[in-house]
């Protein structure tokens, strides 16, 4: 399927391995990515905090650009983009006067947002568009014995109504469902639906890193081998900041954190290094040990990193 692809800012900035691994995984899932390279930052809730109309206009522009592509829908790879964009879209779709007003800000671009865009995180697309059975059929290297702790990120699970979590679409269970479809074992721990702390890392570092450190510690206590996140901002606090978080909570951590496309890519047979896993601050050693010992050949070419 063709999708209008919004990678977000951080996947092309401080977590380049996310954008890179998505590009590697997409063809294996027969997803054609039409990158929205003219679209701007979603504002991550911060621009809305400054001026709601500005955030809504910037995202309406992104939506309008997506609607001009041949993509069947828009796809993102960031919980925070999903949440911030869903919030703007909710307002735009709820009220035609408001939508017209916002669209009047886009006249200079010759763009117009039409109500009713479908914007899905890669996680939702995996379950709802590709389907777990189809995903299961593509697995070349089941994640047998790999114990994975899901970490969603706030923006993709709350508010429940806006995010569209229903009985038919239990989007707050999708990570668990994907981990199982890939052959892995789901680890339940206290932090699954909590906040990584990233939004306040510049404002209250102590509180922010306490959050990250506690969730990582809880996952260790629950004997997870690694965590998987659909959000690069969570990845920054859980991986990049992990050594600092370890100091704040005063315990050894060393918990690898994988981006969702990396976990999918591993199961679909891609090599850890090709998925950018050498770029992580906490090297996903547990995943590599697993790859070399449990499944012959896997990870062999990635030796030495």
């Amino acid at each position: 399927m063709k999708v209008a692809y919004w990678p977000g800012c951080v996947s092309r900035g401080f977590t380049p391995e996310l954008h890179g691994s998505m590009a590697k995984v997409a063809p294996l899932l027969e997803i054609e990515l039409i990158e929205l390279d003219r679209a701007s930052c979603c504002g991550a809730g911060v621009i809305a905090e400054h001026n709601q109309e500005l955030a809504d206009t910037l995202n309406a522009r992104t939506f309008a650009l997506a609607q001009r592509t041949e993509g069947e829908l828009m796809m993102n790879i960031c919980s925070t983009c999903q949440g911030a964009q869903s919030e703007c879209q909710e307002r735009l779709d709820a009220n035609s006067d408001y939508r017209d007003h916002i669209n009047s800000n886009l006249i200079g671009d010759g763009l117009k947002y039409e109500k009713g865009l479908t914007n899905k995180n890669f996680l939702w697309l995996l379950v709802e568009e590709i389907g777990l059975d189809a995903l299961r059929a593509k697995v070349k290297r089941p994640l047998t014995n790999l114990k994975v702790g899901p970490f969603y990120g706030c923006y993709i699970v709350r508010p429940q109504e806006r995010i569209g979590i229903t009985e038919d679409r239990p989007r707050d269970r999708y990570l668990q469902m994907v981990i199982e479809a890939l052959g892995g074992t789901v680890i339940d721990y206290a932090g699954v639906y909590k906040c990584c702390g990233f939004p306040i890392v510049t404002m209250n570092k102590q509180a922010s890193l306490t959050m990250a450190g506690r969730h990582l510690g809880d996952a260790i206590d629950a004997e997870a081998d690694c965590l998987v996140v659909p959000c690069p901002l969570c990845h920054l606090n859980l991986d990049l900041q992990q050594p600092a978080a370890a100091k704040v909570v005063n315990r050894e951590l060393g918990m690898p954190v994988l981006h969702l496309p990396q976990l999918v890519g591993l199961a679909l047979g891609l090599e850890p290094k090709d998925l950018g896993m050498s770029k992580h601050v906490i090297r996903p050693t547990s995943v590599i040990d697993w790859s070399t010992s449990v499944v012959a050949g896997a990870g062999a070419s990635a030796g030495g990193w």
């Binding site: 809730g45 949440g83 706030c154 923006y155 709350r158 508010p159 429940q160 909590k194 906040c195 702390g197 939004p199 306040i200 404002m203 209250n204 509180a207 922010s208 959050m211």
Partner: peptide
């Protein structure tokens, strides 16, 4: 500025 924008209170 201590709010971490987690939406728990909204739900």
């Amino acid at each position: 500025y201590d709010c971490t924008h987690c939406f728990n209170c909204v739900d």
